[in-house]
């Protein structure tokens, strides 16, 4: 009966919305779900926060190896993906706005666009992952081949070796964090797209209008949050070695 991740409102035969049994008014229900969603996002901040903290510590410990490893990532794809996600945030905001102004077709259009952009992001991510697999920049024994990292420029390699004799090992930590951070982020994207698909289904049935669009708003908060995570991931992962390599 409840398809949305948070609180739902029941549309009864008389066309008016009634709050769920534990609430007195729709207003109270809406405020409660907004606060609940934000609290959930706080847990998400701390969840990603653990990864960011580990990243900060290791970068503090091995700055040169991290810069060298970072420079092998493709800034072009990372930049395009940033733009794609920002774009999807715009379409998500516009989908909610369409509900506010009661433009039901708009909800469908913008939800579709948001999903499409989300999938584009994941596609580009797959291209990047594939490149890393080919270059054997995958840590641990995920692949049959062991991790291999060497700077192509011999001079740079010598310098890096002098500064940090174990730099290939430390580059492996960078790639471990790269895969885990982007992997956890991509998992959030996939979950987001699935929720959007459900919302799309319900908006096709005409469940959302200017009177009731709370699930859209809650999903929007989640989607924008995932965008914010990427906004931090992009400079931290892709750009930190840009000026030295």
């Amino acid at each position: 009966m409840n398809s949305t991740p948070l609180v739902d409102g029941h549309a009864h035969g008389d066309g008016h919305r009634h709050p769920a049994h534990q609430f007195e008014t729709m207003e109270q229900q809406k405020e409660t779900s907004t606060l609940g969603m934000w609290l959930f996002l706080v847990t998400e901040i701390m969840f990603f926060g653990g990864l960011f903290t580990a990243y900060v510590i290791y970068r503090h410990m091995y700055p040169d190896a991290f810069a060298a490893a970072s420079s092998t990532l493709d800034v072009k794809w990372g930049g395009i993906n940033t733009a794609v996600l920002i774009c999807s945030s715009l379409t998500m905001a516009l989908a909610i706005r369409s509900a506010q102004v009661n433009w039901r077709k708009g909800i469908l259009i913008f939800l579709s666009l948001t999903m499409l952009l989300g999938l584009t992001f994941l596609g580009i991510k797959a291209i990047e992952y594939r490149a890393k697999f080919v270059e054997r920049h995958v840590p641990g024994d995920v692949l049959n081949e062991p991790f291999h990292f060497e700077l192509e420029n011999h001079h740079e390699a010598a310098v890096a070796q002098a500064q940090d004799p174990l730099y290939p090992r430390h580059a492996e930590i960078f790639f471990a964090l790269y895969f885990i951070m982007t992997g956890v982020h991509a998992t959030h994207m996939i979950i987001g797209i699935l929720i959007l698909a459900v919302l799309w289904h319900f908006s096709r049935k005409g469940k959302f209008d200017s009177e009731y669009y709370n699930p859209l708003e809650m999903t929007g908060l989640y989607w924008h949050f995932v965008d914010i995570v990427w906004i931090f991931l992009f400079p931290l992962l892709y750009l930190l070695g840009a000026h030295t390599h």
Partner: peptide, 27 residues
């Protein structure tokens, strides 16, 4: 709680795929 969740996840990944995040042998 989210911090222990991610920590445990890292331990699981390290144990499962032998990725050295907390292993001193791997830096």
């Amino acid at each position: 709680t989210p911090v222990i969740a991610i920590t445990i996840l890292l331990v699981g990944i390290e144990r499962g795929f032998h990725i050295g995040i907390f292993d001193p042998r791997l830096g």
